[in-house]
Design a protein around this nucleic acid. Structure first.
Length: 503
RNA sequence: UCCCCGAUAGCUCAACUGGUAGAGCGAGCGGCUGUUAACCGCUAGGUUGUAGGUUCGAGCCCUACUCGGGGAGCCA
């Protein structure tokens, strides 16, 4: 069946020729004697034009009543036409309904988040999800390609794990034949041992965090890639990270331009994502947050938001007045009603941001040296920059035991976060690892961890320890940033969120 | 764990300070040869999340619960 069908995304090779397509009915419009069937086949959309008289009358009638997402094959002549979605359309001569669909729940109109997640198995077919999935595919491919082409060896780390990388409380516990084990929250400790064998390695797979975080940046199951490099320092890691992220973005721009356009991503800004990225220390960030600059920035943003709110409110009032005026054509009323729904949605969004602005400003102003940066602090810093920002040298007390202490300033560690621009926040966290046996042992004890559990990890510092480090990049956050998607739950096919798993 | 917001037709949303619930989309029928979330006409579709309370009267006010959204802490 397959090899006789042509893929929609290769139609330009068949201009003027007769081909058969196999796919699903995405949408259809019709008038008395002509029908437009938009068919999706997984590679793209194609408008198929059915004219009465050019197909059997019986078929014409069947196609007219064919429900959304019915599967079918169509035969016809390919022709270029500007008016068509992909630039090519099919003049249909015949069609065969494979399976008629009736009452498909996801209509071409707007739907709520909850509804769509409950229909995730079907929502994957929708344009926006389809585009995001393709971008994700490119990102995952770029991740592998970057490391494979730069001398890294893939190391698959275990999902069932005996050790704690970050924080005990954020682990999912599983009953492993009567013994408690955890689902991995990082492959880093394992990958460190592999780096001492191969030099440059990476692991790539799902990661599990039981954090009770209900935000647009969190999933309990997400994908993370973690490179680890022997004989490197903080500067080396930053360079690796900025080259890596820039490569990912460039690959998406090469392969997914039409997807980015369809979903309205900001490609002009993506074009500028090239090394070097901004570099700030935690201490610098702290003084920015506490200082005049952040205050002015936040106040300016608040003003902008208020302006925006005013404009939205004016527009809404305008439309409402128009609605009251009466004596309108039906289509005009509909347009206004649709417009109002959109405006009210935008207004709600702006209002939340206005509500949050002073809270975030206060949190920033109250920044205390020694605390970890909050999500809102990162948002502010990332909003203040048009390119990704590295934040380095965090206070030791706020960070994990394995991060190497800066010998020039014992209060900080040689770590970094990478904040994506325009408010997307953290997409990478990484560090140079403590390679000194005694210091590491001390840190393990300081954090109240059991040194016995980390015996093998300590061994790495016993037998030929070298300066080394790495980082973890969150795939979904990267997808969200690049696609401009507000919530990372749209950036993984089947999201797992705190207390909520739909299908 | 805490704070804010919400729940009305299959879906997305209206209903000004309490007065018998309305649109659009979707569905069904009819019309239209170039539509782009097509359009036009008609039809069907509701115990307003649940349980109480206030009131002559509750979608609207009060209490509790359930579910959902956003955010804080924490993080990729």
């Amino acid at each position: 069946m397959n090899n006789t069908h042509v893929a929609v995304n290769s139609l330009q090779e068949y201009d003027g020729k007769e081909v058969a397509l196999a796919g699903w009915l995405y949408n259809s419009r019709g008038s008395g004697k002509i029908q437009f069937l938009i068919i999706r086949d997984g590679t793209g959309l194609c408008q198929c034009v059915v004219e009465k008289g050019k197909v059997p009358d019986e078929l014409f009638g069947e196609l007219r009543h064919l429900g959304q997402e019915s599967s079918l094959t169509v035969t016809g002549t390919v022709r270029a036409d500007e008016r068509s979605v992909g630039g090519y359309e099919l003049a249909v001569t015949n069609a065969q309904i494979v399976s008629a669909s009736d009452g498909y729940p996801i209509t071409p109109k707007s739907h709520g988040v909850d509804f769509l997640l409950k229909h995730r198995h079907l929502h994957l077919r929708s344009q926006r999800q389809w585009c995001i999935g393709r971008v994700r595919h490119t990102i995952v491919d770029a991740i592998r390609r970057f490391f494979n082409d730069n001398g890294f060896v893939l190391i698959d780390t275990p999902i069932f794990t005996t050790i704690v990388g970050e924080d005990q409380q954020s682990l999912f516990e599983v009953d492993y034949f009567g013994t408690p084990l955890h689902l991995t929250q990082t492959g880093q400790l394992y990958v460190e041992s592999a780096a001492m064998s191969y030099g440059k390695v990476y692991c790539f797979g799902p990661t599990f965090r039981a954090e009770k975080s209900k935000t647009r940046r969190h999933l309990t199951e997400f994908w993370m890639v973690e490179p680890e490099v022997a004989f490197t320092d903080l500067d080396g890691l930053l360079e690796l990270a900025e080259n890596f992220v820039s490569f990912i973005v460039s690959q998406v721009l090469i392969n997914n331009r039409s997807d980015l356009d369809t979903i309205g991503a900001d490609t002009t800004t993506l074009e500028t994502i090239k090394p070097p990225f901004y570099r700030l220390t935690y201490t610098e960030v702290g003084s920015i947050l506490r200082g005049e600059k952040a205050k002015v920035f936040q106040a300016e943003q608040l003003r902008q938001l208020q302006d925006e709110r005013q404009q939205l409110e004016d527009k809404i009032a305008e439309f409402e007045a128009e609605q009251q005026a009466g004596q309108l054509k039906q289509w005009k009323k509909d347009k206004i009603a649709a417009e109002l729904i959109e405006l009210r949605g935008a207004l709600a969004e702006v209002n939340t941001r206005i509500e949050n602005n002073p809270k975030h400003a206060q949190l920033a102003a109250e920044f205390q040296w020694g605390e970890d940066l909050g999500g809102s602090d990162e948002t502010i810093i990332s909003q203040m920059h048009d390119k990704p920002v590295f934040v380095t040298h965090y206070p030791k007390q706020a960070k994990a035991f394995y991060m190497k202490t800066d010998t020039e300033n014992e209060k900080v560690v040689l770590n970094f976060d990478l904040l994506a621009p325009a408010g997307f926040g953290e997409i990478i966290g990484g560090s140079v690892r403590e390679d000194d046996y005694d210091r590491l042992l001390e840190r393990i004890k300081d954090q109240g961890l059991n040194p016995e559990t980390y015996e093998w990890y300590l061994d790495l510092r016993k037998y030929g320890s070298v300066p080394h480090g790495g980082f973890g990049l969150g795939v979904e956050r990267t997808v969200a940033w690049i696609t401009g998607e507000k919530h990372i739950r749209q950036c993984i096919p089947f999201p797992r969120m705190m207390d909520k798993v739909y299908i």
